[in-house]
């Protein structure tokens, strides 16, 4: 890793090789990496050959990609000290928007897709605006927003199409970009997930923007006093999560070739679970993108891997619940390690 070697070079000579390992252990994703490896090893043993075949990989990667695209901006928001539960309502809303506009009314798909992404960003902007103006906790604001968007989606769907579900026949381009299965099993969404993760990693860890996000989550008042446009940043982050949720909604419409009013609820807690397993501190100020990706993979492996084993699939939820608790405990330990670290002793 480039950053690790840089620090080694900058430090005084004669450092022990163990310090590089110690440095890794102090990163926010240390716990989630171990968790991911453990869970993967567990299912590799108990789920057998199919789990390790390409089809096995595809089954959890497809799930991971959809949750992952939502978990990334939710994680960023959580690092900034906010929560967004409205993603669960934005996904079906965006799905239906594109299906109604391009499927029901037959307008060009580009219009439908843009409108759907627009809906997502508008919901995000409304969330951000309400949170910064009213100072009501974002948990409450986004729950309220979730119900409002759910109601509006149902209302408009019935009003415009007379039904709670609408079909759409995606064009070749849309299908190729958003709805195809590579090799017959890998959803193209996986590549979008990787791309979005790369963009977010740049934003959080490389660009100066990332520093603002950490500062915002650490102490909002001090961040504002330091000259960070905290309100604009909060609204932008909410818009980003609205956009990503809408993106998942659109790609679902393209994959399943229809959109329903219900659906998407599972994303609310699953996305938060992925970020917390990934080492993001629920109260903000600490976390990493790699961690969120690890957390998402862990979650998806348990979720899907259980079907490859001889265990009762309902056990999957029990494992995820236990994992969440374990992850938080482990992450607390690693964070203490990071805090107590001094170079002289280490």
């Amino acid at each position: 890793m480039a950053s690790a070697s840089q620090t080694l070079a900058a430090g005084p000579g004669g450092r022990r090789a163990g310090s590089a390992l110690g440095q890794l252990a102090r990163r926010p994703e240390a716990g989630s990496f171990l968790g991911m490896v453990a869970v993967f090893a567990f299912f590799a043993v108990f789920a057998g050959q199919v789990f390790l075949s390409p089809a096995g990989f595809a089954s959890w990667l497809n799930v991971a990609a959809e949750i992952g695209i939502v978990a990334l901006p939710v994680g960023l928001l959580m690092i900034a000290g906010e929560l967004d539960l409205s993603v669960g309502a934005v996904i079906p809303a965006a799905s239906l928007t594109v299906a109604v506009i391009s499927g029901h009314y037959g307008l060009p798909e580009s219009v439908g897709i843009l409108a759907a992404l627009g809906v997502g960003m508008a919901v995000g902007a409304a969330n951000g605006f309400l949170v910064t103006r009213t100072e009501v906790p974002s948990l409450i604001v986004s729950i309220g927003m979730m119900f409002a968007v759910m109601g509006l989606t149902l209302g408009f769907s019935v009003l415009l199409t007379g039904s709670t579900s609408t079909g759409i026949v995606p064009s070749e381009t849309s299908k190729f970009l958003l709805g195809q299965f590579i090799g017959g099993m890998f959803q193209v969404t996986i590549f979008w997930w990787i791309l979005i993760a790369a963009v977010f990693a740049y934003v959080l860890h490389v660009s100066p923007f990332g520093n603002w996000i950490y500062a915002l989550g650490g102490d909002r008042v001090s961040a504002r006093n330091a000259g960070i446009p905290t309100e604009r940043l909060t609204i932008q982050l909410f818009m980003m999560s609205g956009f990503c949720a809408a993106f998942v909604g659109v790609s679902q419409a393209m994959v399943y070739q229809s959109a329903q009013v219900a659906g998407g609820q599972s994303f609310i807690f699953n996305s938060i679970m992925c970020t917390v397993i990934g080492g993001v501190l629920l109260t903000g100020g600490f976390g990493s993108i790699v961690g969120v990706v690890f957390g998402t993979i862990t979650f998806a492996v348990v979720n899907q891997g259980i079907y490859f084993t001889s265990f009762d699939p309902n056990l999957g939820s029990v494992i995820i619940g236990a994992l969440l608790l374990l992850a938080v405990i482990m992450n607390d330990t690693f964070r203490q390690l990071a805090l107590s670290y001094t170079k002289k002793k280490g």
């Binding site: 520093n211 603002w212 950490y214 500062a215 650490g218 330091a226 501190l281 964070r335």
Partner: peptide
């Protein structure tokens, strides 16, 4: 005021 930020990062918050 940013206990979980590194020295370098918190030193330059906003600038």
């Amino acid at each position: 005021t940013f206990p979980l930020m590194s020295i370098g990062r918190s030193f330059f918050v906003g600038v």
